[in-house]
């Protein structure tokens, strides 16, 4: 099914009432049934072209999608790589602010005519952990964690980023979770993924995890050498199946 779409830079209200930048892609045209919205949480390299491609891909498949620029405050108007360098040097995105920004993006999506009132998150790299964090904090209908690190493990000694493990938050997860990981990844390594799986199962949560042999971190990134087509194509199919069940 081909879907016409409109994609544009927008301003949305994020954490603390701050006005932040975002990239919105939504289906347009008659005959398209409303669907749940997808908040795309960009990877650590920032609000870059690839993240915007991912956002458009959801709209192409019928889901309105919004990627908030999580580095809007530190680096308004800067190129994505300069913004990412600034955010890294500043210690990354605080968890509380992330949740507020995702909440703002979720509300923006829910207000769209093409949205059926449901919402999900999907996050890549650092955004994978943040997607799970959002799902433990906000009334979402589904969440996808793509190779998020430090969900359970503590960041290395001296790491300046303000991230902390989320093990104690897993009990608050109240929506289905899809996890997609690379078996060759070191952050998160397979043992951390296995521990999270055990924790979720023990807590009786609704989740499904898939780990791909021959794939490492960032295997979805088509513009990087880490791209693994076989894992990415299957991963996208898992996402369409998952959202088809939870966002329709």
């Amino acid at each position: 099914m081909d879907v016409a779409m409109r994609a544009e830079t927008v301003t949305l209200t994020g954490h603390g009432g701050d006005r932040i930048e975002g990239y919105l892609a939504q289906p347009v045209g008659d005959g398209q049934p409303p669907a749940g919205g997808v908040v795309v949480i960009h990877h650590m390299p920032g609000y870059d072209d690839w993240s915007k491609e991912v956002t458009r891909r959801f709209a192409f498949h019928g889901y309105p999608a919004l990627c908030p620029n999580l580095y809007s405050r530190e680096a308004p108007g800067a190129s994505p790589d300069d913004a990412a360098a600034t955010a890294r040097a500043a210690g990354g995105v605080p968890d509380e602010r992330l949740v507020g920004d995702v909440a703002g993006a979720m509300e923006t999506l829910k207000a769209l005519e093409v949205c059926n009132g449901k919402a999900a998150t999907i996050g890549y790299c650092s955004g994978g952990r943040q997607s799970l964090l959002a799902a433990c904090s906000l009334p979402l209908d589904a969440a996808v964690d793509c190779y998020g690190a430090f969900v359970l493990n503590t960041p290395p000694e001296g790491a300046p980023l303000s991230v902390r493990p989320l093990g104690d938050r897993v009990k608050d997860l109240h929506c289905p979770l899809l996890g997609l990981f690379g078996a060759d990844d070191q952050f998160p390594a397979p043992d951390e993924v296995a521990q999270l799986e055990k924790l979720l199962a023990g807590a009786g949560k609704d989740f499904e995890f898939h780990s791909y042999e021959g794939a490492g971190h960032a295997f979805f990134c088509t513009d990087r050498p880490a791209y693994r087509p076989e894992a990415a194509v299957d991963g996208w199919n898992k996402i369409w199946d998952f959202f088809g069940r939870h966002l329709s």
Partner: peptide, 9 residues
């Protein structure tokens, strides 16, 4: 991997 280890000076 995305390492979070950053030397800053």
């Amino acid at each position: 991997m995305c390492t979070y280890q950053t030397e800053q000076l």
